[in-house]
Computed example of a mutant assay.
Amino acid sequence: MTIDTNMQTPDASAQPGASADLTRRQAPASMNVIGTIVSGAGLIAWFAWLSWRTTSFNGNIVNIAILALELVAFAASLVVCAGLAVSRPLRRRDRRATDRDRQLPVLLAEAFGLGAVIDEKPAVRRIGNDDTGEIAWARRGISVLREQRRLDARTRLASDNLRQAAWSVVALDGLRRLCSVIVLLVVLFTGAIPFDIPSTERIALLVGGIGLVSIGNWFSSGGHLRPGARLMWSMASIGAGLGDGISRSGLPIRWVMTMATLVALNIAVALRGMSDRWTHGLQPMERDTRIAAMSIAVGLVVVGGLALRRMPRPELGFYGATGRLEEASVRRLALGLTLAVAAVGFVAGVLPVDVLNAAVVAP
């Protein structure tokens, strides 16, 4: 693996001509320390949440799946924090170009000093004509983590291996997001209650911990890993790494996966809200659990919609999407209708019964 030597901290005993470069890099080093401290505080708060989750654990199969996903997410964040702590990337403004049209694995490859990852991008086309990187990166992440499992603990903690592992877990965020969406759909459709709604203090502990980790990673990465970037990347790359990576629908495969996820979440929210309020076709859910599950689903729909806007349009695919007016209209209609129905279901599932009844009988 090629390591970008520009990421290394210069020696204080360097030649006088390097003093300006040393001054320029001292600020990123201090920001890295601040980011590491903030991330550490967030991980402690997150760990406290997980401690409560394990002590209040029950044998519900959905609860087991959710706890497993939480532990994987915590472990992934821990690896990313460790990788950033040993990398000390330059500040984003010192890097070339803007990151608007560049995907997160490319930015993190720069932050971690893994230049070979970027160099491999042209080879992506061999996996699928419409693969813009997600599938190749996910498969590479799986390969790296599989190889590191054979190493002893001391070798895994080496700087280069930590950087590669951190990049790999981010490349695989789409697979983890797919699993979490599936569990969420199961909860909404079956009405399963995985665990009791925690107190406000415990929820604040989880949200605050994740928020601190996100902010700390922003500082530690020199601006490469912005808050919310991993969440948006996971929705944009959802399911990447599964299957043969070849589209058979005439549309770019990652656009189809994200679009299908949004439609499925919209339908689940709509059916849950309407069922608990009017039709009663699904197993009923308690109001607090229903509101929590539906709110998470709506949040993922919003993030997925933002990710969808940043993706290449379907007519730019390689399998015959023509971009004709009627094709674009059908795509917008499918998402728009499910979103509208989901809005009705969300309102029906969240508002109290007396408020809805007053709205219905009002002239």
Rank of each mutant, 00 (worst) to 15 (best):
V181I: 10
E201P: 04
T36W: 15
G223R: 02
S237V: 05
L67W: 12
L356D: 02
T132V: 11
L333M: 13
L104Q: 00
R230G: 11
L185Y: 01
N6A: 15
L351N: 07
R290Q: 08
V80W: 01
G273F: 02
G209L: 05
V207H: 11
I215P: 04
L225K: 05
A97F: 15
L69Y: 06
P28Y: 08
V330H: 08
A260K: 00
G83I: 05
Q164D: 10
P312N: 03
P28L: 15
S168I: 02
T55K: 14
G133H: 01
G35T: 06
Q164H: 09
V181W: 00
D101S: 05
I118H: 03
G349D: 03
P312I: 01
H224G: 03
V38Y: 08
W218Y: 15
G345S: 05
L178E: 04
D131Y: 01
D288C: 03
V86M: 05
D94R: 11
M1C: 07
I64M: 12
S247D: 07
S295P: 05
A268W: 08
E70C: 10
R93E: 15
S168G: 04
G113C: 09
D276S: 05
D131P: 00
A264R: 01
N129E: 10
Q15I: 12
T23E: 09
R146K: 09
M257S: 06
D244W: 06
A48Y: 12
L339A: 09
M294P: 04
V341P: 03
A359W: 13
P314S: 04
L251R: 10
L69V: 09
A165V: 04
L67M: 08
N266G: 09
L71H: 11
D119R: 14
V350M: 14
A41F: 14
G191K: 00
V207G: 07
Q8P: 07
M285H: 05
V170Y: 02
F47Y: 11
Q164M: 10
G174D: 02
T322N: 06
A65L: 10
T5K: 12
Q15M: 14
P352C: 08
V124C: 12
V106M: 07
V144R: 01
L339W: 13
D152Q: 14
S295H: 07
I34L: 09
T279H: 03
W218I: 11
R100W: 13
V355T: 11
P194D: 04
